[in-house]
Design a protein around this nucleic acid. Structure first.
Lengths: 349, 349
DNA sequence: TCTACTTGCTGCATCGATTGTGCAGATGTT
DNA sequence: AACATCTGCACAATCGATGCAGCAAGTAGA
C-alpha cells in the first residue's frame, strides 16, 4: 500500500531527458541563461521534472553552496503572546524572501540556548535571530566562529546589531498614566505604587524598573526597595507576593505596575478574591497586552509591544550593508483601558 | 574585527591528529567500538575536536544518511494559545529524542500548506506532523511519494494515523453544562441557545456542531438552522453577528456557545457594551481556554484542549511499528467558571 | 579558406560525513 | 614454525547538486 519510490534526482531527470546532470541542474535553477542552455531544453527538462515530482535535495545543495536557505530564530518560549507574535512575523518575512524559518525555544536557559545555537550552526542557517538572549556574549562568540550573521531582538548584545522594544519609554509612559489616574480622584493617594513581576537581572525588566523609579522620583516620591517586587514570571509567585503585600498594607496599594501577562494572571488570581469595591481606589497597569485582560471589570492600562516592528527592523539590520553594531529601538503602544467602573459592563445598575 | 574562520571539518581534525578522516568520523560518532578504534585514539581525536570547536556538518551527514535529524510540524498559526502550546510540547518531545523541530504555519491556506510540506520534504525531515490540515489528501499524496511518515493532529486524514481532540465529547459536555446552568434558576428558559464562531466546513467545528445539535435534540429542543452561526474565526465578524442576533431577539439569548477564543474576543466586544445586569439571564460557554477569559465578571464555562496530550500521542503513533492508520482521540478538559455573579469579584457590595 | 567568436552542452571535481572493504601487524594455537 | 584470528586503522566510493573549464559545431568576418 505505502509506495516507497525513492525521490527522483537530477540524475534521473538527466537520463529521462537525454541531457547531462549539469544541464539539468542549470535548467532547473535560475541561471540557465548565463549557462547558455537553450530555452527548448529548459522547457523539456522542467516538464519531465514536474512529471517526476522532482524537488531539489536541499541537503545536497546546502552542502555544495555552504548555505542552507534556513534562517534560525531563538525565542524564550512559544507559548506566549509576545513571542508567538514574533514567530508569526518572522515566518512571514522569511517566506517572503524564500527562506525557511526554524524557530527554537530556549526556555530562558543559557545552556539550552547555547545548544540550540550550536545546532542551528550545524544546519548552516544563513542568519540567526536571538530574542531574549540569556547569554549574548556566548552566542556572539559561537556565531563569530561560524561566520554567521546574527541579530539580537528584545534583549541587546554587544557583539551584534540589536533591536529592542523601548522598554524605558513604555514603562515611563505607563507609570505616568498610573500616577495621573491615581490622582484624578482628587484625594491624596494614600500610599505608594508597587512594581510586581519579572526578573531584575533581565534587561527588559531592568529598563522598566529604571523608568518606574525615574517617574516616581520626578514626582517627588522616590522609590523604596520594597516597592519593587521582581518575583519572576510565574503566576503563582505573583499571586503569593500580591497577597503578602495586601496583607502588609492592610489593603490593595493605590497603584500596581504588573510587569508581564503571566504575572498579571497571578495577580488577578488574588484580586478576584477581593470585592470589586476594594479595587476602586487602585489603578492597575500591565506591561504587555492581552485582549481578554482588557475586558476585565476594572480598568487596566496596558502596553502593547510591536512584535512585528521588532522583527521587521531586525531583518532590515541583518540584511543591511554594512552590518553595523547599532541598537535600534521600537516604540511600544499604550493601550487605554477598555472597561471602566462606570461603563455598562461594570454593573452600575 | 569579525573573524571569518572557516568551520573545521573532520579533514582538519584528521590532519591535526594524524588519523584518517574515516577514523575521525568514527571516533566522533557513537559506533567507534564497532569500528574497533582504540580508546586512546578516540580520546585524542575528541580532545582536538573540542579544541577546534568542531561541530558536525548536518548537511553532509544528512546527504549521506538520507535523514536530516529534522522533524517538521505544520500548524495553522503561531499566534494562538492552542497551537503555540502544541509547538511548545512538540519542541520538548523532539529535543528529548535529539531531533530538531521545524515548525511552520500555513495560515489555513491549502496552497501554502502544500508549499510548506514540499519544502520540508526537500529538507528531508524524518517525520512530519500536520495540525489542522486544510487538505489532508494532498499532504498524504506528497508524503507517500517521498516515503515520509506523517501524522495528522487535531484534524484527521485518511491516509495516515491521526490524533484528534474529542471535539464531540468536549462540545457535548459543554452544551450540557450550559443547559443545566440555564435551567438552574428555576424559571423556564425564555429562548434558545446559540452556537457562534468557527467554520462549519472545518472538521473540529463540524464535530462540535453535531454534539451541540445532539444535546439539544435529546433535550427535546431540536436546533433550528438560525441557531448555528458559523461566522469564522475573526473577532470582528463575531461582534457583528452577536450584535445582530441580540437585535433580532431583543436581548441576549439565554445561552451562547462560542466556538473559539478569537470569536469569544469578538463576542466580548459586544457584551462589554451591555449592562452587566443583562448578562444575568444568559449562560456563556467557550470552546478553548484562556486564563484571563476565566476571570471576566460573568461566569464563563470553558473547555481546555490537551495540546500536550495530542502531541504526545502523535509522537507515539509515528514511532510505533506497525505504523497503523488509526484514529486516536484525546479528551479535552471542562473548566468550570472562576468567577460568579455572587463571587467577591462581582461587586455585590 | 582561415581565424575568431558564439552557442549549447558535457565532464569532472567538489562540498563533508559515512561506511563497506581490505590490509598490515600483533597475538594466540598446535 | 606455520597458521588462524584479532586489533587498529586507512582507502575509496557514495549521497545529490553545483559550477568551472573545455569541447564540438555553427556563424561571422577578412
Amino acid at each position: 500500500m505505502i509506495r516507497a519510490t525513492r525521490k527522483s534526482t537530477i540524475y534521473d531527470i538527466a537520463r529521462l531527458s537525454g541531457a547531462s546532470p549539469s544541464t539539468v541542474s542549470a535548467a532547473l535553477g535560475e541561471n540557465w541563461r548565463k549557462r547558455r542552455i537553450a530555452e527548448a531544453t529548459v522547457e523539456t527538462i522542467r516538464r519531465i521534472a514536474t512529471e517526476q515530482g522532482y524537488s531539489t535535495n536541499m541537503q545536497a545543495r546546502g552542502l555544495r553552496k555552504a548555505r542552507s536557505g534556513l534562517v534560525g530564530m531563538v525565542i524564550p518560549l512559544h507559548d506566549n503572546r509576545f513571542f508567538s507574535s514574533m514567530s508569526q512575523s518572522f515566518e512571514a518575512l522569511a517566506r517572503d524572501r524564500g527562506q525557511v524559518p526554524v524557530i527554537a525555544s530556549s526556555m530562558r536557559d543559557p545552556t539550552e540556548e547555547r545548544r540550540i545555537v550550536e545546532t542551528l550552526i550545524s544546519y548552516a542557517v544563513d542568519y540567526l535571530f536571538i530574542a531574549g538572549a540569556t547569554d549574548p556574549e556566548a552566542v556572539t562568540a559561537m556565531c563569530r566562529a561560524a561566520d554567521l550573521r546574527h541579530v539580537f531582538v528584545d534583549l541587546p548584545g554587544r557583539g551584534a546589531p540589536s533591536v529592542v522594544s523601548d522598554n524605558y519609554k513604555g514603562a515611563y509612559d505607563l507609570t505616568q498614566r498610573l500616577l495621573a489616574d491615581r490622582t484624578i480622584s482628587g484625594q491624596t493617594p494614600r500610599d505608594r505604587i508597587y512594581f510586581i513581576g519579572g526578573d531584575d537581572t533581565d534587561y527588559a525588566s531592568a529598563c522598566r524598573i529604571a523608568a518606574f523609579r525615574d517617574v516616581l522620583a520626578n514626582a517627588g516620591q522616590p522609590v523604596l526597595p520594597e516597592q519593587i517586587i521582581a518575583c519572576g514570571y510565574a503566576p503563582r509567585s505573583a499571586t503569593r507576593e500580591i497577597a503578602a503585600l495586601c496583607d502588609r498594607l492592610g489593603s490593595l496599594p493605590s497603584g500596581v505596575f504588573v510587569n508581564s501577562l503571566t504575572a498579571f494572571e497571578g495577580v488577578l488570581g488574588h484580586l478576584s478574591s477581593l470585592p470589586l469595591e476594594s479595587l476602586r481606589n487602585s489603578v492597575i497597569g500591565c506591561y504587555d497586552y492581552d485582549p481578554f485582560a482588557a475586558y476585565l471589570q476594572f480598568p487596566v492600562h496596558m502596553v502593547r509591544q510591536d512584535a512585528h516592528g521588532l522583527i521587521r527592523e531586525a531583518y532590515r539590520m541583518i540584511e543591511e550593508d554594512p552590518y553595523d553594531l547599532v541598537l535600534t529601538m521600537v516604540e511600544p503602544e499604550q493601550i487605554a483601558p477598555r472597561t471602566y467602573y462606570d461603563s455598562p459592563f461594570s454593573d452600575r445598575g
